[in-house]
Computed example of a mutant assay.
Amino acid sequence: MNIIVFPGQGSQKIGMGKELSENFVEAKHVFEEVNDAINLNLTKIMWEGTDDQISLTSNAQPALMACSVAVLRVLEKITNKNLPNLADYLCGHSLGEYTAMTAAGVFSLKECAVLLRLRGNAMQDSVPLGQGAMAAFIGVDIDTTQKILNEVQTIGICDVGNDNADGQVVISGDKSAVEKAIELSKGFGVKRAVILPVSAPFHCRLMSPAQLVMKEALSKINFCAPVVPIISNTTALPENDTDILKNNLVDQVTSTVRWRETMNFANELRVKKIIELGSGKVLTGIAKRMVKDVTAINIEVSTDFDQF
């Protein structure tokens, strides 16, 4: 039993995908198609830009997706296998769920690039710069986190953005409420609380304007049934139904990314291999900590294919 996972925002870095593009024509074609789709030389930003440029939400989201799809295309070529022969399930962290849907043929690479560019801009525009924040709580469970958040609701919106792993929860909302939650966290036994370097408070109720934008955009896209079931961020359950998949992407904008439960589901399935495709090893690290007897690998550059 194999699961392929796709990374989310935070895994971006300058140079990602360049080596793959130089060595495999399949990867090169993915990056060219994404550039054309959004009418922007995104690869120039990815390979020659600054950290600030690549971290801009509207750049990071299509860039991370392009890297992951490029790796998948090369993997399919090298192994001479199609996706259903490589994975039993797919899932992606936040924007990675869009990558999973592209990989599974729910919508095209071009459509995904346009959607993620729009999603990045809409999320950025939902909250004026400096008014929102996200923070990671280390060494705490979701229930304790919720108790802390209940204490700050009079100050402003503050929700669980990502339930990432055992002992790792990310909160998201109004900056003043997030700061107050950090202040209170020690008294609730939180080992460490760190403000995250993000430009907007993702996956909380403040993202409602972005949710409306995505609902309208997604309503115009024809969804096809996925060739492999996709485990949803919002339900932590596998889905094949196109209407549910579409609704999940709408709900996802303001909802918690339930990654810890996704890894618990992998445990229940007795998954033997989790393969992270694209930039970074964040999800590989979580899988190694949370899934029993699993082989977790990430594939990002040419030499990584050997371990597969």
Score class of each variant (00 low, 15 high):
V178Q: 03
K180I: 13
I38H: 07
K273V: 13
T43G: 10
N85C: 12
F188L: 03
H29E: 15
A181K: 01
M46R: 08
K13Q: 14
V194W: 12
V282T: 08
V127P: 08
G156Y: 15
G130P: 15
A113I: 11
K281Q: 04
E97Y: 06
G187C: 14
K81M: 07
L72M: 03
V213H: 03
N41H: 09
E111L: 07
N162Y: 06
L184Q: 11
K110V: 13
N85F: 13
L42M: 05
E183L: 11
D159P: 00
I275N: 02
S58W: 09
E76P: 09
S21I: 09
C112E: 03
I286M: 09
I38Y: 00
S108M: 07
N23L: 06
R260P: 00
K273P: 06
L237W: 03
M263G: 08
S94I: 08
P229Q: 10
P226C: 14
E33N: 14
N298M: 00
K28P: 01
A296K: 00
R119A: 00
K180G: 05
A296I: 05
P197Q: 11
V34L: 01
N222E: 15
I138G: 05
N82A: 12
G189T: 10
I4N: 04
D241E: 03
L20Y: 06
K180C: 05
A181T: 03
A266G: 00
K18M: 08
F305T: 09
A133R: 02
S68C: 01
W259P: 09
E268V: 07
N267Y: 02
Q61R: 04
E32M: 12
L283F: 15
M46T: 02
V190W: 00
I171L: 13
T79R: 05
V114R: 15
L75E: 09
N248E: 13
E216P: 14
Y89H: 02
F107K: 05
E32Y: 13
N80G: 12
